[in-house]
């Protein structure tokens, strides 16, 4: 609970972060940037859970626990994504989206 800040403001911020993440995922041309965008999306959810828990349902810790697990899973996700990106980079020396699209419809 932060003094002087209401839940609406916090949720607005997380929503903005979320949509920045989605927008970034769609528009970025670099795999690492896309990965960062995804992290934004995930972190928006993390903050959401914590904020909702703290402001609305302070007697149960469900949201907070959830957020810990999201962080953990996000880490695993990132680890995996980065390792695949590195593998790709070793083959084509690029992390640009345009370079990875050999498969077309």
């Amino acid at each position: 609970m932060i003094f002087g800040v209401s839940i609406y403001e916090l949720l607005t911020v997380t929503s903005i972060i979320f949509f920045i993440g989605v927008y970034g995922f769609i528009t970025r041309k670099n795999l690492i940037s896309i990965l960062i965008s995804i992290e934004l999306v995930l972190n928006a959810s993390v903050v959401n859970f914590v904020v909702i828990n703290k402001y609305l349902y302070p007697d149960m810790l469900q949201g907070v626990v959830f957020s810990i697990f999201i962080i953990a899973v996000a880490a695993a996700e990132t680890a995996l994504a980065v390792s695949i990106i590195i593998n790709l980079y070793r083959q084509i020396s690029s992390v640009e989206v345009k370079d990875i699209e050999v498969m077309k419809h």
Partner: peptide, 17 residues
């Protein structure tokens, strides 16, 4: 590798959403 990238990125975004 490309398949892996595409899968993990989409899956991550999906789970984020």
């Amino acid at each position: 590798s490309e398949a892996g990238i595409k899968l993990i990125m989409s899956a991550a975004l999906a789970s984020g959403v």
